[in-house]
Simulated scan of single mutants.
Amino acid sequence: MSSEQELLKTVLEPLLEDFQYWFSRSRSLLESERLSFFTVEEQAQLLEQVKKSQQEVSTAQMLFKATDGQAGIESRMLVPWHHLVAQCWDVARRWRELKAQDSQS
C-alpha cells in the first residue's frame, strides 16, 4: 500500500464515518422533534440538506471501498459537509439549551 493510500485510509475513512455519525444524529433530531427556533420550512430544509449529504457521503464511502482506498475526494466536496456538521452542532447546542430552560421552568 502506498503512503498516499495509507494517508487516505487513515484520514479520509474516519472522516467519512464521522460525517455519517453526525448527519445521522442530526437527522434523528430533526425528524423526531419540532425545533421552535426554526420555522417548519427551515427545519424541513435543513433535514433535506442532511439527507442529501448523507447520500453523498454514502456514495463517497462506497467508491472509497470499491477502489480499495485508492479513490480520494476533492477537498471542495468536503467543505460543504464540514459546514453542515458545524450547523448541526449548533442546532444540537441550541436544542440542549432550550431543553435545559424548559426543565428549569
Results as ranks from 00 to 15, higher is better:
residue 34 R to N: 02
residue 58 S to W: 04
residue 67 T to L: 08
residue 35 L to G: 00
residue 7 L to W: 12
residue 36 S to D: 06
residue 26 S to N: 00
residue 58 S to E: 05
residue 61 Q to P: 09
residue 53 S to D: 01
residue 23 F to P: 00
residue 34 R to Y: 02
residue 42 E to R: 11
residue 42 E to T: 06
residue 43 Q to T: 02
residue 15 L to I: 08
residue 34 R to L: 03
residue 28 S to Y: 01
residue 22 W to P: 05
residue 39 T to I: 12
residue 9 K to G: 08
residue 17 E to D: 12
residue 55 Q to E: 14
residue 24 S to G: 07
residue 21 Y to D: 15
residue 18 D to P: 05
residue 54 Q to W: 05
residue 24 S to N: 02
residue 19 F to L: 06
residue 63 L to K: 11
residue 14 P to Q: 02
residue 17 E to L: 13
residue 50 V to D: 04
residue 49 Q to K: 05
residue 55 Q to R: 12
residue 26 S to P: 00
residue 52 K to M: 11
residue 17 E to H: 09
residue 48 E to C: 07
residue 12 L to N: 00
residue 52 K to L: 15
residue 38 F to Q: 01
residue 46 L to E: 03
residue 43 Q to H: 07
residue 21 Y to N: 13
residue 20 Q to G: 01
residue 46 L to R: 05
residue 29 L to K: 04
residue 48 E to Y: 09
residue 23 F to I: 03
residue 37 F to C: 12
residue 69 G to P: 14
residue 37 F to S: 13
residue 34 R to F: 02
residue 9 K to E: 11
residue 65 K to L: 10
residue 10 T to Y: 09
residue 45 Q to V: 04
residue 22 W to D: 13
residue 58 S to Q: 09
residue 25 R to M: 08
residue 19 F to V: 00
residue 26 S to G: 00
residue 67 T to R: 00
residue 35 L to K: 01
residue 8 L to G: 05
residue 29 L to Y: 02
residue 10 T to W: 09
residue 50 V to P: 04
residue 66 A to I: 06
residue 34 R to V: 03
residue 24 S to R: 03
residue 30 L to W: 02
residue 9 K to H: 13
residue 36 S to M: 14
residue 45 Q to L: 01
residue 28 S to N: 10
residue 46 L to I: 00
residue 24 S to E: 10
residue 24 S to F: 06
residue 69 G to M: 12
residue 26 S to V: 01
residue 49 Q to Y: 04
residue 32 S to A: 11
residue 61 Q to V: 05
residue 58 S to I: 08
residue 36 S to R: 15
residue 31 E to C: 12
residue 57 V to W: 04
residue 41 E to I: 15
residue 28 S to V: 07
residue 47 L to N: 13
residue 41 E to Q: 15
residue 59 T to V: 08
residue 7 L to F: 15
residue 30 L to I: 09
residue 35 L to I: 03
residue 26 S to F: 01
residue 9 K to F: 03
residue 54 Q to D: 01
residue 12 L to E: 07
residue 32 S to G: 12
residue 58 S to N: 09
residue 25 R to W: 00
residue 8 L to E: 03
residue 49 Q to S: 14
residue 37 F to P: 07
residue 28 S to K: 03
residue 63 L to T: 09
residue 44 A to G: 14
residue 7 L to S: 13
residue 29 L to V: 00
residue 36 S to K: 14
residue 58 S to Y: 05
residue 19 F to D: 01
residue 58 S to H: 06
residue 66 A to P: 07
residue 50 V to C: 11
residue 63 L to M: 12
residue 17 E to Y: 08
residue 61 Q to T: 12
residue 31 E to S: 15
residue 69 G to C: 14
residue 33 E to R: 12
residue 60 A to Q: 09
residue 43 Q to N: 06
residue 18 D to M: 04
residue 7 L to P: 07
residue 40 V to E: 14
residue 48 E to S: 15
residue 39 T to S: 05
residue 44 A to F: 08
residue 40 V to K: 15
residue 7 L to T: 11
residue 34 R to D: 02
residue 50 V to H: 04
residue 49 Q to H: 12
residue 63 L to F: 08
residue 32 S to N: 10
residue 27 R to V: 02
residue 48 E to H: 15
residue 19 F to M: 04
residue 56 E to S: 11
residue 44 A to D: 14
